[in-house]
Simulated scan of single mutants.
Amino acid sequence: MHDLVIFDCDGVLVDSEPLSNQVLVDNLGRYGLNLTLEDSVGFFLGGTMAGVRDKARDLGADLPDGWIDEIYAETYDRLRQGVNLMPGVSELLTTLDAKGIPFCVASNGSPDKMKITLGQNGVWERFSQVVFSAHVLGTAKPDPTLFLTAAERFGALAPVVIEDSTSGVTAAMRAGMRCLAFVPNGGGEDLAELGAELFTNMAQVPELLGI
């Protein structure tokens, strides 16, 4: 029996990836790098913003020194306009509560971003005391520290990670943890090759966890 569920945030708990990536596409276009939404997801999903900046520069974007603060501000403004929970998340959290299985969120995103996205959907209070952020810990996925820190905090011996990116799955594998990869639109072969078990709907998770 798993004794902790560790959720990624963007693309797992909240449907923020399309919105954030559209902001990124629009912003980078102003700096000479024209990408499609699909390009942006392919290049940047699951990475840190410093990594996005460096990759974008490699691809030809003429980004200023203060670009990271700029893109965060633009992204947060867009997310404040509205972002949905992934379907089935609320029901899954209720099921985990009923079974006495603790859960937390571990993200490369900032606590401020998670408060925006989770707060407007009524679940921030369920995570506010169990947030593990790369911005706070100073180390990001694919480094496993975020997941290992969460497991240690809970004293968990058999945690399971729910992820949607190669960096997140890689971090889970490096942490020696079981990883379920959420692929609501199908695909995910690259995540399976890394060792994740694929699923397409949050309603599948209780059965996958054996609860």
Rank of each mutant, 00 (worst) to 15 (best):
I6N: 02
F7M: 06
D10K: 06
L13F: 12
L19Y: 14
N21I: 09
D26Q: 10
N27H: 13
L28H: 06
G29T: 07
G29F: 01
Y31I: 06
D39L: 02
S40Y: 02
L45G: 05
G47V: 03
G47S: 07
T48G: 04
T48S: 08
G51S: 03
D58L: 05
L59P: 02
D62N: 12
P64G: 01
G66Y: 00
W67G: 00
W67R: 02
Y72W: 15
E74M: 11
Y76N: 13
Y76Q: 14
R78L: 15
L79M: 15
R80F: 11
Q81L: 14
Q81D: 15
L85R: 14
M86H: 15
M86F: 14
G88M: 11
V89Y: 15
S90W: 12
L93I: 11
L93M: 14
L93F: 10
L93N: 13
T95I: 13
T95Y: 05
G100C: 03
G100H: 01
I101Q: 03
P102H: 00
C104P: 06
V105C: 12
K113A: 07
K115V: 08
K115E: 15
L118H: 14
G119R: 14
G119M: 13
N121L: 14
V123C: 10
S128T: 13
V131N: 09
S133D: 06
G138E: 01
K141T: 01
P142L: 01
T145D: 06
L146V: 03
L146D: 01
L148M: 12
T149D: 05
A150E: 10
A151R: 01
R153P: 07
A156I: 01
A156R: 00
A158H: 13
P159D: 07
V160D: 06
V161S: 11
I162F: 10
D164W: 10
V169S: 03
A171K: 01
A171G: 04
C179Q: 10
L180G: 03
A181C: 09
G187F: 04
G188P: 06
A192E: 10
E193C: 04
G195C: 04
E197Y: 11
F199L: 07
F199D: 06
T200R: 15
Q204G: 06
Q204F: 11
L209N: 04
